[in-house]
Amino acid sequence: MKTFLTEFFTWWNGQTMGTRFWTWRKGELVGEDEQGNRYYRQRNGDRRWVIYNGLAEASRIPPGWHSWMHYRVDEPPGDYKPREWEKPHEPNLTGTPRAYRPPGSILHRDPRTPARPDYEPWSPEG
């Protein structure tokens, strides 16, 4: 019952009832990534979509699947192995208490005092 209500009333958490019906009727499973997101295409190949495992956040799509979703490549990626210099996924924290607040921001926990400017203005007297 909880799954039904979640699918009926929320669009940001997994799939909706409409997406479930569309996927059942016209979708073909192409693959799944390491986060559990499932990728589909329409049987005639016109559309591609993802059903997120959890919250819908576009930054959770890995680079190989991103290329496939945006029609940059025709074939879905195989087993994706990140390179040693690639960082693991970090969620977009904008609008949350953990968002980045640089020094000088009015939202920073220790805002600068306006008495100490960052620069010394030029004066013609030299």
Rank of each mutant, 00 (worst) to 15 (best):
W22M: 11
T23Q: 01
D46M: 12
T19A: 14
T19N: 05
G18Y: 08
R47M: 10
R41V: 05
R20Y: 00
R38G: 03
G27E: 02
Y40A: 07
R48G: 03
V30C: 02
Y40K: 06
D46Q: 14
E28V: 13
G18P: 03
G31P: 01
D46F: 07
R47Y: 13
R43G: 04
R25K: 14
G45C: 06
Q42V: 04
K26G: 06
G27W: 00
W24S: 14
T19W: 05
L29M: 10
W24A: 15
W24C: 09
G45L: 07
R38Q: 12
Y40N: 07
Y39W: 08
R25T: 09
R20T: 00
R25C: 08
N37F: 00
Y39Q: 01
Y40G: 06
L29V: 08
W24R: 15
N44T: 07
G18I: 11
D46W: 07
Y39K: 02
Y40R: 09
D46R: 09
Y39L: 06
R43A: 08
R25I: 09
N37D: 03
T19D: 08
N37I: 00
G27A: 14
R25W: 12
Q35K: 11
T23L: 05
L29T: 03
D33N: 13
D33Q: 08
R25G: 00
V30Y: 00
R20S: 02
T23K: 05
L29I: 04
G18H: 13
G31N: 01
T19H: 04
R20E: 01
V30Q: 01
R47W: 14
G36T: 03
T23V: 06
G31Y: 02
N37S: 00
K26A: 11
E34M: 07
R48Y: 04
K26L: 13
R48W: 05
Y39D: 02
F21S: 10
G18K: 13
E34N: 10
G27P: 08
D33V: 09
W22A: 15
L29Q: 06
R47V: 09
Q35Y: 12
W24I: 13
R38K: 14
W24Y: 07
G36L: 08
R25F: 11
L29S: 02
G45Q: 07
N37H: 05
D46H: 12
R25Y: 10
R20V: 00
G36R: 10
D33M: 05
N44Q: 06
F21N: 14
G27K: 02
D46P: 01
R25M: 14
E28G: 04
W22I: 09
N44P: 01
T19C: 06
G18C: 07
E34S: 14
V30G: 04
F21I: 14
K26Q: 13
Q42G: 09
D46S: 13
F21L: 15
T19R: 12
Q35T: 08
R43I: 11
D33S: 04
G27N: 03
D46N: 05
R47Q: 10
W22S: 09
G18N: 15
Q42F: 04
D46V: 13
D33W: 05
